[in-house]
């Protein structure tokens, strides 16, 4: 999997000591958050990123709690901020979840 700016996720993980401002500079837009989620979900489920419909409820993909928590942890690490463990239940599709993250971070369209 690669992240929206084309680097492997490990590069972001290693940079978790960077300041939040630097990391948020990496997260440029909600489109990139959406792409992160799309790629993460596709990887977790072993399906093509193109097959991920952003309005489809996570549970209909077969996303179980272990995978949902893992994605929440990856997203929190990438964004360098705490996210509630219930994130994927509170915002049950990519569109809703992207909207929530964009609101919290004050991201541009």
């Amino acid at each position: 999997m690669t992240t929206p700016d084309g680097t492997p996720p490990e590069a972001h993980r290693r940079s978790s000591r960077a300041s939040s401002a630097e990391l948020r500079a990496i997260v440029k837009s909600r489109a990139q958050v959406e792409k992160f989620l799309r790629l993460g979900l596709a990887e977790a489920l072993g399906i093509s990123p193109d097959a991920v419909d952003p309005t489809r409820t996570f549970t209909t993909f077969g996303l179980d709690s272990i995978k949902a928590f893992a994605l929440t942890g990856d997203l929190a690490e990438w964004l360098d901020r705490d996210l509630p463990a219930t994130l994927f239940w509170d915002h049950p599709n990519i569109e809703a979840l992207t909207g929530y993250v964009a609101d919290v971070l004050g991201l541009a369209e």
Partner: peptide, 12 residues
């Protein structure tokens, strides 16, 4: 897949 996940938390 949805029904089993919702009902039991089990991912088929």
């Amino acid at each position: 897949i949805s029904a089993v996940l919702e009902g039991l938390g089990l991912s088929l």
